[in-house]
């Protein structure tokens, strides 16, 4: 197992080790996540980026143990949190972790709230479920968090239904609901993808503010947008084909991307300098989940592919403190460079 530690020995709140999750698709095992290891530090904004189908959501849902079974199954791995392995908890213990210690919000603000219950009921429900608290007190706390996330006139809007809120407002409600028990980790799965740019900026700023004001909590932000990551995260995990391809501090990743896939992603973003000129697109398409190649998952599209890539999958190696890369080229460099 690769040792995944950060250079500034920060406190680690969550450790994911060698996670494997597969789905049964018409009798075949589709490995949506195959060997993902990373740490989440205290007080950090950790980004997970990657294209559609790279296994970001499945990783998040595995941490929450929310993989639909069947057809899904967490086949292997460990997830250490608060001195326990989440994967070996029984259901009752897991219920206490969800919502109270690790909370999650989702991409679709329009459908993620229950349409037939009021906002107040849904926000207070989390609290009432996890804490011994009276209905009136729970309502008061709900007003408090809703105000914190920027719902104007929160007390009056408690009895409104989700359809009376806009998309951006609903995402704020989701955040309020997730934060009301003061969880240590908030997993946000594409929280702004469905929103307008100006609303996205509001929501991301809100999340940054809330994180800064609450010591000891961390956010895992899942997105496919490298610009969003650049703007909000301190550390990034780049995923492709169900594997972590590169883990680095945000500056290191943008200054010195070591994985060909990361470079490909960064190069395909239009910039001011290359206006109107051809972009450096990555050739080909993301393969379907059952047709990823053996060896390096990226070898069918990689411009720097060598023979070895098609045979064995490269390990994740630490090329600089806290900078991990899964690529044969880097592995060679690392081997040459090390004494």
């Amino acid at each position: 197992m690769t040792d995944v530690t950060n250079k500034a020995a920060a406190e680690t709140v969550l450790e994911v080790r060698d996670l494997h999750t597969c789905f049964d698709i018409e009798g075949e095992s589709a490995w949506a996540v195959s060997g993902v290891s990373f740490d989440v530090h205290a007080d950090e904004f950790l980004g997970i980026v990657g294209e559609s189908g790279s296994g970001k959501s499945v990783t998040a849902l595995s941490i929450m143990r929310l993989i639909p079974d069947p057809p899904g199954k967490i086949a292997r791995g460990e997830i250490h949190f608060g001195g326990r392995d989440l994967l070996s908890l029984d259901y009752r213990e897991m219920h206490k972790v969800r919502g109270r210690e690790i909370a999650m919000i989702f991409q679709e603000p329009m459908t993620s709230l229950n349409p037939v219950f009021t906002i107040g009921m849904q926000v207070a429900e989390t609290l009432r479920h996890h804490e011994e608290i009276s209905a009136a007190e729970a309502r008061a706390r709900a007003v408090e968090v809703l105000t914190q996330v920027g719902i104007p006139d929160a007390a009056k809007r408690l009895d409104d239904y989700p359809h009376q809120f806009s998309g951006g407002m609903r995402q704020r409600v989701m955040i309020a609901m997730a934060l009301i028990c003061r969880p240590r980790i908030l997993i946000a799965d594409e929280p702004t993808t469905a929103l307008d740019v100006t609303i996205q900026a509001q929501i991301l700023d809100l999340m940054k503010e809330l994180l800064a004001s609450r010591r000891g909590s961390s956010v895992i932000l899942i997105t496919h947008d490298l610009a969003v990551v650049a703007e909000t995260c301190q550390r990034v995990i780049v995923m492709y084909g169900g594997k972590t391809q590169e883990i680095a501090d945000i500056e290191d990743l943008f200054d010195d991307p070591r994985h060909p896939y990361t470079r490909g992603l960064l190069d395909s973003i239009p910039t001011e300098q290359n206006k109107g000129k051809p972009l450096h697109a990555i050739p080909g398409n993301v393969p379907g989940i059952l047709s990823f190649p053996a060896g390096c998952k990226y070898c069918t599209r990689c411009p720097e592919v060598i023979e070895r890539c098609k045979i064995d999958g490269p390990p994740l190696v630490e090329v600089a403190p806290g900078h991990h890369v899964r690529c044969h080229l880097v592995e060679d460099q690392g081997a040459e460079g090390s004494p």
Partner: peptide
């Protein structure tokens, strides 16, 4: 997807 988006933009410009 981001990587494919660039291909389509290139194609449209050509």
């Amino acid at each position: 997807d981001v990587s494919v988006q660039a291909q389509v933009i290139n194609l449209m410009l050509e």
